[in-house]
Design a binder for these strands. Structure first.
Length: 491
RNA sequence: GCCCCCAUCGUCUAGCGGUCCAGGACGCCGCCCUUUCACGGCGGUAGCGCGGGUUCGAAUCCCGCUGGGGGUACCA
């Protein structure tokens, strides 16, 4: 696309403006990332603004969570966080200016009247566009006031007319004013609405480019109208497509991990999350799929963002995550693993040396994990006495006699091993499987289950070495005992 | 209903009128490697929604259809 990068040499100022009404969604996180990258790329300013004009739904917990997640993602802001709830004076001032300029008018319609107007328009296949009555007589107004009614202030959308957005992603988008209702700018209690506050803030904060979700595109002409009525110049806009779930519906909690908070809890590290997110709707070329943060800063270009919505594929995130984990150096991985486990309370109620054990097992799981949360599935057996997963036991019991032979054979070798190292264990077991004339899979699977109680675990040789000979032998005996019961009982 | 937007393998995408009987990645399938689960390597599978134009030539431009998404509040 050869989109005009409007001859605008002012330093770039972008903002991310979530409303603190829940945790940060992956869609929101991607928008934040895009804004941050655009700012860092252009050496501009990234501003964080909390749009909390909806006092009912905004919570301090949500605000704190959003800030926390931003930090987790490594998206630091240069200004803010600003809170719209703290800027009320500014908005009221602007509303007064709009009144003085005749750009807004008092509208007295009741909710019922508005509903009726819209229903009627709809019935007539017309746009449900509200235009308040502006020809009330002084007596009527006095009567409204007498009954305690207070008006909202609506923006008088100029008719006829149109507002054109030169969107960096979508190109030229035109809205006919006939389709834009006289939107409310100040509620009857005097508080500003979103469209007023957002427009005023973008203007007052000197935002030069607004990068936000496509769900805002129909608000854009309204905000442009407000800014112009206030004598300002609207910023450049870039509306990014939404992120969908696998059913092609807008991504939401019912699609599984839809918030960054959940991804974090699922054991994903920030870098693969960023990498997966940035690739939803954006690509650098026809082959690059992994980027460092620096490469992203260097290469990101919002005008290359796709116009069509993208489906969020958790599987792909997992693949990226697994690759990232494997590419980490051992110590770095061990730190990340232990930190993550600690953050989830994994060590609570476990032995005091559990974190140390986790650190020692890190190299055994590093190539096997696609996310940190899979650690327990692989290494959980190390933290508890031997107990068999039902499906693991089922594997052994499929052929009890053979299982006993395998485990017994293995036991015979390891219990006489002096130097209990990975290599020696491997040699001894390899030799034994040869003797018994079995394939590695046939022979080793029972060993794994005997020792770990699991069908999937850390590597068998490493696991034995880690356990030490005595504990290994004890576990072998225990497994054998369990099978012997079955053997006699079954025949 | 009305307005806006979108449309390349199952998914994320490259593609900006010829270099495309459409390239990459994930998935999936097969083979190999590792005498284990995993990891890794190699190969394969699969797509320009449909119909009209424009053009010597269209995945690329135009129109229509169909399909999908968003908006339609004194929410943001």
């Amino acid at each position: 696309m050869h989109h005009m990068d409007t001859a605008d040499d002012r330093p770039l100022r972008v903002r991310f403006a979530p409303s603190p009404t829940g945790s940060l969604h992956v869609g929101g996180a991607r928008t934040a990332l895009f804004n941050w990258l655009a700012a860092r790329h252009a050496d501009g300013t990234f501003i964080l603004r909390l749009e909390d004009t909806d006092r009912e739904r905004s919570t301090p917990e949500s605000e704190a969570e959003i800030l926390r997640v931003m930090q987790w993602m490594g998206l630091d802001w240069d200004e803010g966080p600003y809170r719209q709830s703290e800027r009320d004076d500014l908005y009221r001032e602007c509303i007064e200016k709009l009144k003085a300029a005749g750009a807004v008018y008092a509208a007295w319609e009741t909710a019922e009247e508005l509903d009726a107007m819209r229903a009627e328009a709809r019935a007539n296949k017309q746009a449900p566009v509200v235009r308040g009555r502006r020809d009330h007589t002084a007596e009527e107004i006095a009567a409204f006031e007498a009954e305690g009614r207070t008006p909202v202030w609506r923006f008088a959308v100029p008719l006829p007319g149109e507002t054109v957005i030169e969107d960096m992603i979508r190109g030229t988008v035109t809205f006919d004013h006939a389709q834009i209702e006289d939107f409310v700018v100040a509620r009857s209690d005097g508080t500003p609405t979103y469209n007023l506050a957002a427009a005023v803030d973008d203007m007052l904060m000197d935002i030069t480019r607004v990068i936000r979700g496509e769900d805002h595109i129909s608000n854009t002409p309204k905000q442009m109208l407000v800014i112009r009525a206030l004598g300002g110049e609207p910023p450049q806009y870039a509306h990014v497509p939404l992120i969908l779930g696998t059913d092609k519906k807008r991504l939401s909690k019912r699609h599984g991990a839809a918030s960054v908070e959940e991804l974090e809890a699922d054991g994903f590290l920030p870098q693969p999350v960023r990498n997966a997110l940035v690739l939803l709707g954006w690509s650098y070329d026809d082959k690059t799929t992994t980027f460092t943060m620096d490469e992203l800063i260097e290469k990101f270009d919002v005008s290359r963002v796709s116009k069509s919505p993208a489906v969020f594929d958790m599987k792909k995130l997992e693949v990226m995550s697994g690759r990232y984990l494997r590419a980490m150096d051992e110590a770095e991985f061990a730190d990340a693993l232990v930190d993550w486990l600690a953050s989830t309370g994994y060590f609570e109620g476990k032995a005091a040396d559990a974190p140390d054990l986790a650190r020692r097992t890190a190299p055994l799981v590093q190539r096997k994990l696609s996310r940190l949360s899979e650690y327990d599935r692989l290494a959980g057996w190390l933290y508890r006495p031997l107990e068999f997963e039902p499906e693991a036991l089922a594997v052994l019991e499929e052929d009890v006699k053979k299982s006993i032979q395998c485990i017994g054979g293995g036991l015979g070798r390891i219990e006489v091993l002096d130097d209990f190292t990975v290599d020696n264990i491997k040699d001894a077991l390899s030799d034994q499987l040869h003797i018994q004339g079995l394939t590695a899979r046939e022979f080793l699977e029972p060993q794994r289950i005997a020792v770990t109680g699991q069908t999937i675990s850390t590597g068998i040789y490493e696991s034995l070495a880690l356990l030490g000979r005595d504990e290994s032998v004890a576990r072998y005996r225990q497994a054998l005992g369990r099978l012997a019961e079955k053997w006699t009982g079954g025949e």
